[in-house]
Design a protein around this nucleic acid. Structure first.
Length: 561
RNA sequence: GGCCCGUUGGUCAAGCGGCUAAGACGCUAGCCUCUCACGCUGGAAACAUGGGUUCGAUUCCCGUACGGGUCACCA
């Protein structure tokens, strides 16, 4: 077989040689140890929570080492492409602190444009580049055209899908398929010419030289040493539309674009033998690989399953909607990514996660379960460290979009809202009431007359006349200019007069000796003022509400008893 | 089914031949306290399993079980 002739037949328009292309993509000039990583999504949907993991690793590794993080759009499957998905992907990522030095970025007009010397960064724009290398592989007898239609192939593939096929059948079927596929390697120049003349579509397949019985060794930076069979499958390089498959595009692009570390989900592990084979065929130096464990969720049966698109928490937009702040999500991702992150955080409560020395060796090998409890805890800590002005602003921004009525209340008087959010904030041990912005309303809604709701009323066991007496006595003595001590002494006195002891210790020692305690008296007042059994420090609440509101609320509560 | 990968409390995890097997979340008891939140002090809770190797295995090797991934002209 004259492979040169075959190559010309297949790709007559391709004039460039691999050397020409290489010259257009010179090696990067980077300091020693700088890592070049990338995020390479296919624009088929939203950013997946699971996808944020490899991306965060890529970002940290590149920027921590003085290297480059770039974005390449893998739009090689027109059928699945979703318009606008790429733009949305980039926007979401930027919210989560991932910014790209190079690649497909968002221009001023909100449209994707290229930045950097290794473009185009959309694979659909790189057709001729792939074909140059494809042609070369044909010339070298390492790839060949296959004119078998998709429909014909489909039947053979069914072998892999049928679960009910028994053991032996499986193997027999697989053997049969393999033998059948091997037949595609046998063809004559005349047949090719005839197909081409008839304009029959074809795919370009690699001529695999692997032996399925032999193993290759490989070291993954996360998973360590492993072994798997050599690739003996003639997988597709170029689809019938001339666009490459992931495998081929990966080898060409990551080589040309100078990627030093390929960071991707572990679902790619099984095709690694193919990729390594390709790098060898093309005489490219293979990059280092890091395969990141998947994030799991529990299914109905209690088994772990890969977090999939439809699961709550898969779409990053879910977090925005639920009111999680991106910093908290990043923080949570970091705790899962590096086992010593939390320890570092405790020692460095005020630093950015970017100051954390990210360590590949501290990465987990196996997939973890998504845990909302943990996220909430992390989030409460993050928010508790923010100042009142920031919290006010961010709750307001969130509410404007997802709870407009509440947003309007906050907007009506920002300084009032800020005084509320300032409660218990700023000290060494701040309150941790908020895990999400959505928690704000139930937490502090009672400050607003519009949201004040008396939940359930006073518990049955309390004497209504005691409550009435307490409220009346409080109204009489209430003076907003009192300091906290004076204010509380007055409350104690009110209680004492009614047989409710101010001495909590004595009360706990023998509750039956008293009608109640000052805790009950406080509750009577608290409920009247806030409509809740629990609230932040009552004195402060009253200071913020002001005498007029406090008085009105107590009066109306008393009237309703 | 083949091929890969994995298996320490409910979850995330330290551990790297000898430890009373860390810590965090969650749960829980109590303290603090006008309630809540915060904080503090405790508690319950784990090395999947069977064989080796070894003076000694959670740690090393093999098998088993279980879990996950993957087997496309999708990425």
């Amino acid at each position: 077989m004259d492979y040169n002739k075959l190559a010309e037949l297949l790709y007559p328009d391709i004039q460039k040689t691999p050397e020409d292309v290489e010259a257009e993509f010179p090696p990067r000039q980077l300091p020693e140890g700088a890592k070049v990583t990338r995020f390479a999504p296919s624009p088929t949907g939203f950013v997946h929570f699971g996808g944020l993991f490899p991306t965060t690793v890529a970002e940290r590794l590149a920027h921590q080492s003085g290297g480059v993080l770039y974005l390449r759009i893998e739009d090689t499957d027109a059928k699945r492409e979703v318009p606008g998905a790429a733009e949305a992907l980039i926007r979401t990522l930027s919210v989560y602190g991932v910014s790209f030095d190079e690649g497909a970025i968002l221009g001023e007009d909100g449209k994707i444009c290229d930045k950097g010397a290794y473009g185009p960064y959309k694979q659909s724009m790189r057709g001729p580049i792939y074909q140059v290398f494809a042609k070369q592989l044909v010339r070298e007898g390492k790839a060949y055209p296959c004119f078998t239609s998709e429909e014909e192939l489909e039947e053979l593939q069914q072998v892999n899908k049928k679960e009910e096929i028994k053991n032996t059948d499986w193997q027999a079927e697989a053997e049969k398929r393999r033998a059948e596929m091997l037949k595609r390697r046998e063809f004559t120049m005349e047949e090719v010419e005839a197909h081409l003349a008839a304009k029959d579509p074809f795919v370009l397949r690699i001529l695999a030289d692997g032996d399925g019985e032999k193993k290759i060794r490989f070291t993954d930076l996360v998973k360590g040493n492993m072994e798997f069979p050599e690739n003996d499958e003639d997988f597709v390089l170029l689809k019938s539309d001339g666009i490459p498959t992931y495998h081929f595009a990966h080898a060409i692009d990551d080589h040309l674009m100078g990627t030093t570390h390929v960071i991707r989900g572990e679902e790619w592990l099984p095709s690694l033998a193919k990729h390594l084979q390709l790098f060898r065929y093309l005489s490219f130096k293979a990059p280092k690989y890091m395969h990141i464990a998947q994030i799991m969720r529990l299914d109905e049966a209690g088994n772990k399953k890969k977090l999939s698109k439809r699961d709550m928490g898969a779409n990053m937009d879910d977090y925005t909607r639920m009111g999680y702040c991106p910093e908290a999500v990043c923080e949570y991702v970091m705790t899962l990514l590096n086992s010593n992150y939390e320890e570092w955080r405790m020692q460095n409560p005020d630093k950015s996660y970017r100051d954390f020395p990210f360590n590949i060796k501290k990465m987990s090998v196996s997939g973890c379960l998504f845990d909302f409890n943990k996220l909430n805890d992390v989030s409460k800590n993050v928010i508790s460290r923010m100042d009142a002005a920031t919290v006010t602003q961010r709750v307001t921004e969130w509410a404007r979009e997802f709870d407009p009525a509440f947003g309007a209340l906050l907007d009506a008087d920002p300084s009032f809202a800020e005084r509320i959010f300032a409660i218990g904030r700023g000290g060494k041990k701040p309150r941790k009431d908020l895990a999400t912005w959505a928690d704000a309303k139930p937490y502090m809604g009672f400050f607003y007359d519009e949201l004040l709701a008396y939940e359930g009323g006073y518990p049955e066991q309390y004497d209504r006349s005691d409550i009435r007496a307490t409220l009346s006595a409080f109204l009489e003595s209430y003076d907003p200019s009192d300091d906290m001590n004076v204010w509380f002494e007055k409350i104690k006195a009110i209680g004492q007069a009614l047989g409710y002891t101010p001495d909590m210790k004595a009360y706990k020692a023998d509750p039956s000796a008293f009608r109640g305690s000052v805790a009950d008296i406080s509750m009577f007042i608290r409920f009247a003022v806030t409509g809740k059994m629990n609230a932040p420090d009552l004195y402060t609440v009253m200071q913020i509400l002001g005498k007029e509101k406090v008085t009105r609320r107590i009066e109306s509560t008393r009237a309703g008893l």
